[in-house]
Design a protein around this nucleic acid. Structure first.
Lengths: 305, 305
DNA sequence: TCAGTGTTATTCATAAGTGAATATCTAATG
DNA sequence: CATTAGATATTCACTTATGAATAACACTGA
């Protein structure tokens, strides 16, 4: 009677979320035929279909949908189990996964990570670079560097320091287009903005500006491209003060002080006492605030003649 | 990264509860070597041991114990999932599991079940006979007939009727030992009682009597044996009025009215709307109260010469 | 209309998991 | 001290499950 296969519920959960056997197979690390068969087997045991099949994927039947709540609860519990288990693995060997955005990855980590890796050769550091908030829940990462305080209650956040921001352009750009002195004038310039990232919009709103991403001259969420373009006389960029200055960019004073960018170090409650994770967190907390940015200045190959 | 195998957590949960690979293998329907290997695999993945091994079985390490809470939660969710899924299987074929005590099984069901099975040949009725409250949680049974209201909130109970009780003995017994007329005198007689079942003790306490199971002349929880023995001049039995009378036993009036025995029909909230289960419940609710007891009078072979 | 891209289902050689039997261990017992 | 009972671990023949390849299908867009 205890014949129930938790594995099949797991498969079902992921299939339901992805809506496709192929994607679920990818996520689960098994093959699509395997999922197909397990799903059929589960449906056979339950006596009715969990999904409607089509050539565009699978969509939950009412029956399948009615079971999703329990599946999600099971998944959360399973994830918590994994976190708690891994949080108690106090060995100083193994992996630590760190999630950072492109700016940290490009301009800060290269300065400080080698020393850590030298000091802890048993530890393999895995770095996930993304501009979205990585899921510490799913243990996609153990530690995350974020520029905003996390909202989840079960995350522990440590405010490290604040990065001063400013608007910058190269001397060459300013020679060609002049130097704006008011916010209004600034917005008429070739200022680089974001694509889907809403952070700048929100920050501007707090300053009383009405700015939409659509208004920008050039739009990308990949900030190192902002920097590289500005360095090549491409326009005005709002970025880290120290970084811009180390690149020889000139600060533009439009009479408005940009708010500092806070830097938070986050991890999950369940793993905060883990030695490996603690080691890297403490090291980052020590070294990140002291680091001058600017190791790999130019990620994109270019020839400035 | 989503490599986590829910199945192994299931195995771990059952192993932890049973404290033995062999028993867990039994409960899970797999072999002991399979469990041994999966457990080793899980421990290897987590990097530390979940159990201390000994020749007396496995005992949780502190690490393993710290994970049990999550496992139990997962198990409950899985069980709820199974119930909800099976509750929505509206086919009128398949199995329905019914849990009853020995009295119902012996003296009532034989009268009424054949008609139900004739009317619903597609349905296979499985009957678990136990005097303990069967677990509707684990879906050991879909429906349970109980003589006391269930305490769990997620069970639905339907009070069917009340069975009048009385003290009875055969004419032969009364001829030999006389007829008691007071409670005190009754307790001096060869009255049959229970072994581990505390219900009679509790009921007697409500009447103001102080009776312990140890005081009885003959002790067994198997009530049909009470009946059979009384019918063979073996002593006095407290049992169902109609049943005793149909056996030709004589009621003994000691000036105290025994409280009626309530009969409840129970099922889990999650499956109450299931057609199969509903069908049998409704049938039992209709037929049980009207049934005269006494189909198979003498379950034990005997020769009354 | 006709490739192109996505989907699920099926096939079959092969790899992985399984379990009966067995080895090995320990505590309890005569 | 030898024996028994009950436990986990290991072995190996064998069953089962797996996945690369493929088929069959439906939508999309040129």
């Amino acid at each position: 009677m205890n014949n129930t296969d938790w594995q099949q519920w797991h498969f079902f959960t992921v299939i339901a979320r992805t809506g496709s056997l192929n994607q679920a197979a990818d996520a689960l690390g098994v093959s699509q035929p395997t999922l197909s068969r397990h799903l059929q087997s589960l449906e056979a045991r339950l006596g009715q279909n969990l999904f409607d099949r089509s050539t565009r994927g699978l969509t939950l039947t009412a029956f399948g949908a009615s079971l999703m709540e329990g599946c999600q609860q099971m998944e959360q519990t399973a994830q918590a189990l994994e976190r708690r288990a891994s949080g108690q693995d106090q060995a100083l060997s193994g992996r630590v996964r760190l999630s950072v955005n492109e700016m940290i990855a490009q301009y800060y980590l290269p300065n400080i990570l080698p020393a850590f890796m030298d000091a802890n050769p048993q530890l393999s550091v895995e770095i996930e670079v993304t501009n979205r908030a990585s899921s510490l829940d799913k243990r996609d990462a153990d530690i995350a560097v974020r520029m905003f305080p996390p909202t989840q209650l079960d995350l522990i956040a440590r405010h490290l320091y604040d990065i001063p921001l400013g608007f910058y352009a190269s001397q060459g750009y300013l020679d060609r287009f002049g130097t704006p002195t008011t916010p209004e004038a600034l917005l008429e310039h070739r200022i680089m903005g974001y694509d889907r990232d809403k952070q700048f919009e929100l920050g501007a709103a707090q300053l009383g500006w009405t700015v939409r991403n659509e208004d920008f001259f050039l739009r990308t969420d990949y900030m190192p491209l902002h920097i590289a373009l500005a360095a090549q006389d491409g326009g005005i960029v709002g970025t880290h003060k120290e970084l811009a200055e180390s690149l020889g960019l000139i600060e533009i004073d439009v009479g408005v002080k940009l708010p500092d960018l806070p830097v938070y170090l986050c991890c999950h409650r369940d793993v905060v006492h883990n030695r490996r994770i603690r080691l890297l967190m403490d090291y980052l907390a020590d070294s990140l605030p002291q680091t001058k940015p600017g190791f790999l200045m130019h990620p994109l190959p270019h020839d400035r003649s």
